[in-house]
Computed example of a mutant assay.
Amino acid sequence: MELLVKKGIGDLRFGMIRTTVESLLGNPDRKYTDEDKNQIWLYNRQKLALTFYEDEAFRLGYVVSSSIATTVSGIPVIGKSAADLIHELPQKQFRAWESEWEEGIQNHFNEDNWLMLVEEFGVIVKVELGAVIERDEFVWAAKL
């Protein structure tokens, strides 16, 4: 699935409501509510976690993928070193990266695109993408 920065993943767009997502992907394998009352849907086959924000009328706002089919700008992500991927990504679009290491996990965050690469043992094991915020408001790719 192609990660589309500021938009979503595959056919999913940030701002979609749950019924629209369900019509595209089917029933999730598991649903749960986090401490902020957001709803998280897990799709095992796709290795995908989707977060619907409670304070945004349960619109899709965050995606986590561990699928080897995940790409960014057409470049495969999972299993590649973060340094190699960052070098291959278009530098104009992916300029600044912040990195932090904690308990064996190296996170690489690109705030402009709200993209996080999670690296363990020298390779990316998952990628996280969130809807961007401008002027304290989410920028939704899908309109209601």
Rank of each mutant, 00 (worst) to 15 (best):
E128C: 12
V127S: 08
K126T: 00
W140R: 10
T70D: 07
S66E: 15
I75D: 00
E102K: 14
E98S: 11
G10H: 05
Q39M: 14
I17N: 07
F138E: 04
V21S: 04
Q106P: 00
K6C: 09
V5G: 00
L60D: 05
Y62D: 09
V63A: 02
G130I: 13
D34L: 06
E98C: 00
S66A: 15
T33F: 09
D136H: 11
I86N: 02
L42T: 12
P90M: 03
R30H: 13
R13L: 14
D36K: 13
W41D: 05
S66T: 07
E88A: 12
R13V: 05
Y62T: 09
V21M: 11
W101Y: 08
A96G: 01
T19P: 02
M1D: 02
R59I: 05
Q39C: 10
K31S: 14
I133R: 15
E2A: 11
L115H: 02
L12S: 01
V64M: 09
N44E: 13
G26F: 11
K92L: 07
E100Q: 12
Y62H: 06
P28W: 11
F138W: 13
Q106L: 14
V21I: 08
V77M: 02
K47A: 13
I9S: 03
L4G: 00
V77L: 00
L144F: 11
R135V: 02
E56I: 00
E111I: 13
R13Q: 08
E88D: 12
Q106W: 09
E22C: 11
T19D: 13
G130F: 03
G10Q: 04
K47F: 03
L60C: 01
K31Q: 15
L24K: 15
N44M: 06
N107M: 11
L60W: 00
F14C: 01
H108T: 06
A69F: 00
Y53D: 12
K37E: 15
G130Y: 06
H87L: 08
Q106T: 07
V139M: 11
N110C: 15
L85M: 08
Q46S: 13
